[in-house]
Design a protein around this nucleic acid. Structure first.
Lengths: 186, 186
DNA sequence: ACATTATCGGAGGGGTGCCTCCGGATCCAA
DNA sequence: TTGGATCCGGAGGCACCCCTCCGATAATGT
């Protein structure tokens, strides 16, 4: 993420306040991951071992809290694009997509976010595209991926599968592999 | 569905009562489709133009209502397996899976149900397998579908994509097509 | 040590949903 | 038409969640 976060949420100065702030973010990441955007704020405060008032002081609206968590996840994801840069086209794309799945503890929420509309979401979306789309384009240029697929198609396919339930991690990988295989030229 | 519904919910005798019963089912189908299993029962009663008491008289628990809707959808789905019986293996499988997507107005709910556990869900699951698994097996025997894929893999992949959001129906079809393509042997 | 001031946390009012209960409306058979 | 069986529907008690407000608490500078 190149610029400052577009949200006016700042990490507090005092030591105890910082502890609470971080605990809230961690709890929120967990809760949003489990229940999606609708997670109970009082539950998040409880998980963080903090009063509900403290939550609202740091994050006046649900949106503020969610965006802060979300931006963190996306930043992390964007950074991983460099790490795959020197792999062959197909491997680069696939391993980045695998991180797309793994890094987003905000699983349920991230797919909801694909459709949502706000300045921040638009920003995050464009960041993801900025780092991810070239990976797809490269694989297409190399003739590995079919040319009629868009990056948006790919993302939605992956995030749909991420949100789905599987009996175990092995099945998730297997199914993900099948779907990714569908991207390749024949 | 071969046997009687395993749930003890019966359509009432009196004309007005039957009208309400049916209105409730229709409203529930809608609401579950939009909001998943957690849809508000009071909202369902409102949509049906009926008091909340009437809802509870017909369906003492949320489970009863959901199961009744769910069974209806599954029965309908199972019946469609015959209609594709005389297509070539791959086409048969694909068009049945397309109906799997289309028929389940209970969209969000159906994927939740894949993981849930109850006598009824087990029953429905086994019915789906009974009609669907042979379609996959046939395509595999014909050499069209890779042999390492299970029916469960396929279903979860499809239902994951069903639950995901897309910008329009065309994209949904396109992505579905990509994923299905991953099932084929190369 | 102590005052200052940022921070805490939960009580409380308003909203919604769950489910029960029963007086009153409605249907239908005779 | 009419009486009894059936069915209706919403009021009301409980639980949870949202968000605000403010007295109590604890960190920090001197």
């Amino acid at each position: 993420m190149s610029a400052e976060s577009p949200v006016a949420v700042r990490r507090p100065q005092r030591a105890d306040a910082r502890r609470n702030f971080d605990a809230l973010l961690a709890a929120a990441r967990e809760a949003f991951g489990e229940h999606g955007t609708e997670a109970s704020l009082e539950d998040i405060a409880r998980r963080a071992g903090v009063g509900i008032g403290t939550l609202y002081r740091n994050f006046p609206t649900r949106q503020d809290l969610f965006e802060t968590v979300y931006i963190g996840e996306i930043e992390q994801l964007c950074r991983t694009a460099d790490e795959v840069a020197d792999l062959p086209p197909w491997e680069a794309l696939v391993s980045w997509l695998h991180r797309f799945v793994a890094y987003t503890a905000t699983k349920r929420a991230i797919s909801e976010a694909l459709n949502r509309d706000s300045a921040m979401f638009r920003h995050c979306r464009s960041e993801i595209y900025r780092v991810g789309e070239p990976l797809l384009a490269r694989a297409q240029a190399a003739g590995t991926v079919r040319p009629d697929v868009t990056f948006d198609d790919t993302l939605r396919m992956i995030s749909g599968l991420t949100a789905a339930g599987f009996v175990d991690a092995a099945q998730r990988e297997r199914v993900l592999g099948i779907a990714l295989d569908g991207l390749r030229t024949r």
